[in-house]
Simulated scan of single mutants.
Amino acid sequence: MAQREARLMQVLVNVDVSNLDQGIAFYCRALGLHLTRRLFQGSVAELRGAGVRLYLIEQANGSGATPAGCRRDYREHWTPVHLDFVVDDLDAAVRRAIEAGAVAQPAQHAAWGSLVTLRDPFGHGVCLVSFNGAPPYEVGAT
């Protein structure tokens, strides 16, 4: 019996934003992504250019986020899930992000490279990472 080739699982990244046009402008300008299409009567934007499809979903501030009654809040917040964008020129990437509306923390430097944490205009944490050689998760990989 012939074995089926395993299908690679896809990862889709979804980010809630209170203003879709502002979200598109930020992620395209700050990170070099590009809008590929709008979905669901224009309430969702698909962006590409980072190895995954990124979907911005317009959701009003204060709208229900869970059946248990949690409400969306776009003030600065922390979440255990965030986006890391690997860039070649960290200084240029940080400059673009700030010009597009991000708030940046000072760069952190380590033997593997450098990292800058950002807050997008909707309070989401986003990191810009620049590696010195192979990313740490590839070192020693077989």
Rank of each mutant, 00 (worst) to 15 (best):
Q108N: 11
A68W: 04
R71C: 08
H82I: 09
S18L: 12
A134M: 15
R95P: 04
A107F: 00
N19M: 10
I57G: 05
V129F: 04
A50T: 00
G64V: 15
I57D: 02
G113K: 04
G51M: 11
R71A: 09
L12S: 13
P106D: 13
A30H: 01
I98R: 13
G42K: 03
H109D: 09
L47A: 10
A6G: 11
L56Q: 12
V81Y: 14
P67Q: 01
V116L: 03
E76W: 14
T79A: 13
V17N: 05
A65I: 11
P67S: 02
G133R: 09
D84G: 06
A60Y: 02
S18G: 15
F26C: 00
L90T: 02
G125A: 09
L54G: 11
V44R: 09
Q41V: 09
H124T: 14
C70A: 07
P121K: 02
Q10F: 07
R75Y: 08
A68D: 11
A6S: 14
V17Y: 00
R96S: 13
Y74I: 10
E58M: 13
N14D: 10
E5C: 07
D16W: 01
F131A: 07
D21G: 02
A102Y: 05
A2G: 13
E138N: 05
A141M: 15
L56R: 12
D88G: 07
A104Q: 08
Y137T: 08
A50R: 01
D89R: 00
L90C: 01
H34A: 14
H34V: 13
R4W: 04
R53V: 04
S43P: 07
G51R: 10
Q10S: 12
H124M: 14
F26K: 00
H82Q: 05
D16L: 10
Y55H: 15
I98P: 09
I24N: 03
Q10A: 12
V11T: 15
A111C: 01
R75D: 11
A104S: 12
V15C: 02
A6H: 15
M9W: 01
L54T: 14
L39V: 09
A45N: 06
V15H: 06
S63I: 06
R48F: 01
E138C: 06
Y27A: 01
L8D: 08
C127A: 05
V17S: 00
T117V: 12
P121R: 03
A6L: 08
I57K: 03
R75M: 13
R48L: 02
